[in-house]
Design a protein around this nucleic acid. Structure first.
Lengths: 203, 203
DNA sequence: GTTAGCATGTAAGGAGTTACATGATTTT
DNA sequence: AAAATCATGTAACTCCTTACATGCTAAC
């Protein structure tokens, strides 16, 4: 999850850890609270070791000693392998892809996903939420007499949220099928807006 | 979280692990997927060591060799210390009490919580959700131009869910203040429906 | 020149998962 | 008696957190 999110954000622009954390918080604010540094920095090191990102900014790095940013900061940049990795993570869908968190992260990077994959993920998520919805309906119809009023109220509220999300997903799926971007008229471009040559890099 | 839920369920009736898992799934179906055995059994052992529950059912246990259930099963029962522990966990409110999961578990056992605590938790949760809501509003008003349509749609959907939950909480708080049980006319009893004999004061 | 906040990291540990191993009971 | 399902458990691991330690940079 974090790996996907970091690679996705670094594809938009090189950043240092602190900044990354803030961007993560705004982009994934709906999904989860801000990540802690205790996770962020070790993960960045891991991605670096794997060759998916490079670090630059202070004495030990290869190039750019005191250039892109102030000393002390370490600016991370995605590599070509990192972009491949990101694309692979985005497209592959295991069961965790349809969890609240997994779906949220995938959705947040839909602008870099092709339409077929978007549809696959939206439909998978819909199936997942429908299953949960059916489970809640079953409980409410079959076990409502042995559950207390508060527990029932919780289930009702959960059921309502499921129904609402299914409707939301239906709408998104319809839009995807007819080529519209979410709640907007028509997208000027189809998927993966960046990536040809370096448009926004060099900063 | 799990600890609270297990103690709460065992307060309703003695159960073996497998059963506990199913009950957990129906009671907390809105909150999280079913717990895995790899967590459940070690946790049961831990609660046992702490003296909050006792195990009975097969050769090594103190009493009841082939009585309450079939051999092989281990039936767990809450102890007096366990009930105290449960009450303490229910009443104490750290920051995690207002998370999705923490709030859900506390709410699921509101029937065993006194009204003052219920109000405190509902209000804490409301504050938490309002904060998240404000964060999302800020992002939508301040950063909407540098975020893509999908990310924005995610934030909008999240904001909607927050607003909805706040309204739900408001309603529950109002009901609590006026002495009504959730979405029902009037409760016949006030909190702690089980637990005859000494009402949990003691100590 | 000292406080506040930006920025990077490590160590220890919590809370759970999956995969595996095993056996008892019920159904076919 | 074979297959399905109920039932208990362990080992290794993942992903994340909190608490701590440290240094740089800007503001007062």
């Amino acid at each position: 999850m974090l790996e996907l999110a970091i690679l996705g954000l670094l594809q938009e622009a090189p950043m240092h850890g602190y900044e990354l954390r803030k961007e993560l918080a705004t982009k994934l604010g709906t999904i989860r609270a801000a990540i802690s540094y205790g996770t962020l920095y070790p993960t960045l090191k891991r991605l670096q070791t794997a060759g998916w990102i490079t670090a630059a900014g202070n004495a030990d790095a290869d190039v750019v000693p005191p250039l892109t940013s102030k000393r002390g900061r370490v600016v991370y940049k995605i590599t070509a392998e990192g972009k491949e990795r990101f694309a692979a993570l985005l497209a592959q869908a295991g069961p965790e892809t349809y969890d609240d968190a997994g779906f949220g992260v995938h959705f947040a990077f839909f602008a870099r996903t092709d339409r077929a994959t978007r549809l696959r993920i939206l439909e998978g998520r819909r199936r997942r939420v429908e299953e949960r919805r059916e489970g809640l309906r079953d409980v409410l119809s079959r076990a409502s007499d042995r559950l207390d009023a508060y527990t029932l109220e919780l289930q009702r509220h959960g059921l309502d949220a499921c129904e609402r999300e299914v409707r939301w997903l239906e709408e998104l799926i319809t839009n995807e099928r007819s080529g519209r971007s979410p709640s907007g008229p028509v997208p000027p471009e189809e998927s993966v807006p960046a990536d040809p040559g370096p448009p926004e890099d060099r900063h």
